[in-house]
């Protein structure tokens, strides 16, 4: 790989949840769609595997570390300096595991033996918001085709993008603003609200749905009360819990929200004039027509 290509290409680690035919495929579709217009170029890491997600780290630290680190070593082998993991579960696991092997020499040796590859500490793992902020803000301003009207967006970051802050080193863990900046950059109104980094219950969606229902309700209520008419997310689990369960929650708590839950990549795509279908806007449980319609004005 030449120096030139190294600079522009970023290793793409989709993770299981956002690949085609998965529960959050529209996230992957829109991330790739947007990247084709404004860059940076994303190239899928060859033969990546699941990071083990919460199930691995909750039950077996070494297994979790090895599963995550294998992907970083693959990226290194393919010659990437930076990897994008749009799913924050993946990016968090990858970064924490990279940090753990860096701090614990014995663990590093064990993991290197298990994955049969050397471990690199040089590959930078980034989340989607970081990539947009670091590479694409000017492009968005330049190539923006549509300006949304009446779209008030609550940016919901959840847990995994910002915590643990000392290791992830991304934004303010109590009041992050990166996604809000992107929302403002595409011309929508960023709503200031109180639940940006509250937990949605994440991985308990199957095993403890009651927990998820309560936590997501609080988030939906917080966004609605702050005057938001859409919630932007950058996490498949946040999306699944807020989108798929919303009808459930409405029934349980007797309050109708009907708030579309959209990926930040979808919002960028709409602003760039991409077709809603190409962004996977038809894959949501809560109808997204309201959001799509907000983008009907072409900018002068």
């Amino acid at each position: 790989m030449t120096e030139e290509t190294k600079k522009t290409k970023i290793g793409y680690y989709p993770g299981c949840a956002i690949t085609k035919c998965s529960t959050s495929e529209e996230y992957g579709t829109s991330v790739l769609g947007v990247s084709r217009v404004i860059g940076p170029e994303l190239v899928e890491i060859d033969d990546w595997n699941c990071c083990g997600a919460s199930s691995a780290h909750a039950t077996n630290h070494k297994l979790s570390t090895a599963l995550s680190v294998r992907n970083i070593s693959l990226a290194e082998k393919d010659g990437y300096d930076e990897v994008l993991a749009p799913c924050p579960m993946c990016s968090q696991r990858l970064i924490i595991s990279q940090n753990d092997v860096h701090e614990d020499k014995k663990l590093r040796e064990e993991v290197e033996d298990a994955i049969e590859m050397p471990i690199s500490s040089n590959v930078k793992v980034s989340n989607y918001l970081e990539i947009i902020k670091n590479y694409s803000m000017d492009e968005i301003a330049e190539k923006r085709k549509k300006k949304p009207e009446g779209l008030k967006v609550a940016s919901y970051y959840g847990c995994l993008l910002v915590r643990p802050p000392k290791i992830l080193k991304f934004d303010d863990p109590e009041n992050p603003t990166t996604m809000d900046e992107i929302v403002t950059a595409i011309g929508a109104e960023a709503v200031d609200w109180e639940f940006k980094t509250n937990c949605c219950g994440g991985g308990f969606t199957l095993s403890r749905p009651n927990v998820v229902v309560k936590l997501t309700h609080d988030i939906l209520e917080g966004a609605a009360d702050a005057g938001a008419n859409a919630i932007a997310v950058a996490c498949p689990m946040c999306h699944a819990n807020l989108d798929m369960r919303q009808k459930n929650i409405e029934k349980e708590y007797g309050r109708r929200f009907n708030i579309p839950i959209v990926y930040i990549s979808e919002l960028i795509g709409l602003a760039l004039g991409l077709k809603p279908k190409d962004l996977g806007m038809d894959k949501h449980f809560i109808d997204t027509d309201f959001v799509v319609d907000a983008f009907s004005n072409i900018e002068e």
């Binding site: 959050s24 070494k62 298990a114």
Partner: peptide, 22 residues
């Protein structure tokens, strides 16, 4: 959004090894 056919990676053996080790 729910596929019946699982996607097996090429390095399945390598994953097995990781599980065996840990």
């Amino acid at each position: 959004k729910l596929s019946l056919t699982p996607h097996d990676i090429k390095g399945k053996k390598s994953i097995k090894r990781i599980f065996e080790k840990f």
